[in-house]
C-alpha cells in the first residue's frame, strides 16, 4: 500500500491526514509535504495518523524533522494516534516525550502549549 496525504485547515491549524505505510520508500513524500507546508507559512501542524498502517524509524525521522522546522518558527506539530502498534514505536524510542499525541483531531486543534 502506498502513502496517501491530504491537508485541510481547521481553526488556523493545518491538519495533515496520512494514510497507508510510512517507510523508507514513502517517507520522502511526507517529508516533502511537511517542508512545503512550513515554506508556505503553516507553522502549526496536526498530523492525523489514524489511517497509518505501518510506521518505521524513517517515518519517525521525518516527523522529528518536521517538528524541528515548525519550532524554528515558534510553531507546533501535534500527532493524532490511537493505534497501539503505532504508539508503541513512539514509546520505545522515547518520542512520546517529544511529540504531543492526541486522541482526536478536535483535541489536537484545541490544544495550546
Amino acid at each position: 500500500m502506498d502513502l496517501s496525504l491530504s491537508t485541510r485547515t481547521v481553526d488556523n491549524r493545518t491538519v495533515v491526514e496520512v494514510g497507508g505505510e510510512i517507510d523508507v520508500y514513502t517517507a520522502p513524500k511526507l517529508r516533502e509535504q511537511l517542508v512545503e507546508l512550513v515554506n508556505d507559512g503553516s507553522y502549526h501542524l496536526v498530523v492525523d495518523m489514524e489511517g497509518v498502517d505501518f510506521l518505521d524509524s524513517t517515518g519517525l525521522g521525518v516527523l522529528v524533522g518536521g517538528l524541528k522546522r515548525v519550532r524554528a518558527h515558534e510553531g507546533s506539530l501535534r500527532l493524532v494516534c490511537n493505534q497501539e502498534r503505532i504508539l508503541k514505536i513512539f514509546r520505545i524510542t522515547g518520542l512520546t516525550k517529544v511529540f504531543p499525541i492526541h486522541t482526536s483531531v478536535e483535541e489536537a486543534v484545541a490544544a495550546t502549549d
Binding site: 524509524s57 524513517t58 525521522g61 521525518v62 522529528v64 524533522g65 520505545i92 524510542t93
Partner: peptide, 18 residues
C-alpha cells in the same frame, strides 16, 4: 546519513527495543 535525524541509528534503537 540523511538530512533528518540519524535514521540508521534510530532503526537499530527500534530493533533493540522490539
Amino acid at each position: 546519513v540523511s538530512d533528518e535525524a540519524g535514521e540508521g541509528d534510530m532503526g537499530l534503537a527500534v530493533i533493540s527495543g522490539l
